[in-house]
Amino acid sequence: MRLSKLSVAVLLAAMIFLFSSGIGYAAETADPSGMGLSPIAFFFVFVAICTAIGVIAVLGGVGGGVVFTPLMMGFTPINSFIIRATGLVVALAGSLIAARPFLRRGLANVKMLFFAALPYTIFAVVGALLAGYVETSAGDFGEALIRLILGFLVIFIAGLILFGGKKVEYPEVKKVDGFTQRLGLAMSYWEQSMDKVVHYKVRRAPLGTFLFCACGIVSGMFGVGAGWAMVPVFNLAMLAPLKVAAASSKVLIGIGDSGAVWPYIMRGGVFPLFAVACIVGVVIGTSIGARLMFTVKAQLIRWIVILVMIGAGVKLVIDGFNKL
């Protein structure tokens, strides 16, 4: 099955409509003392919203959390610590469900995963602890700072994907450095769309290690999956093919964020009424998106990610300045 650009655009438009109408419905029915929805209505509204988020996120090769957290922080009044905690749970759940087909097809590079998991996990945990420190100690200033930094980061990475890469779908690796060579990260996978095996090498593993540390901090602190940052690290810095980068980052989110989410849970920041609705929605959306991913062209995926990230990033920057 190969979907046309038109059908994917229609699907995307429907998802965005679902998201905006869900938030709109929630906002319209809110009363001054609360949301104005019954708990069960709230649950289903957020299932619908998060289904839309799940589809968009997985098509972009990023975790649900990276779309969920900026959108929720930008467009709902819910406390940002709770959103970031839930964002990690959402990213995690979406990643764990989506990881299976990527690993069974060999699309995710397992050696690259275990190599990147160490710096990413350690620094995701550090980021979660920093988030807890800001929540308990820095007050409104900390909240404004988190929104500003997250907003600028989202816009920066969108710009990086937009302007930073040529031949990103299948980057050409001319020379592999000694360290990366010794790691033996070169692998191959079956590319269904071309009906052939793609053999690929990667390079710059030391730079990748450093960048995965930064991705971990961002992920743990801001409650985002960081697939948005890890796809460029795998693809632009280490020169892995785009689909391998997207699949590997998706699986890596599940590993690293498992370490980061527990400090949030132990702090009481995850509320089942909100979190379960978001998990269920993102998992449904991720399942739909994962099926579409093998048939959608990588170029189109990039544009979906870029648009979503710029929109949410701008809103967060505005919110951050308003709160300063």
């Binding site: 469900i97 299976r100 690993l103 060999g106 397992v110 095996v197 599940g254």
Partner: peptide, 27 residues
């Protein structure tokens, strides 16, 4: 096709299966 699909690393398959089913159970 001229080529056969490469062998998929078992470590990834094991991780993926365990993580998937436990995550699903939790959900």
């Amino acid at each position: 096709s001229k080529e056969k699909a490469p062998e998929v690393p078992i470590a990834g398959v094991i991780y993926g299966e365990i993580a998937y089913w436990i995550a699903l159970l939790g959900i």
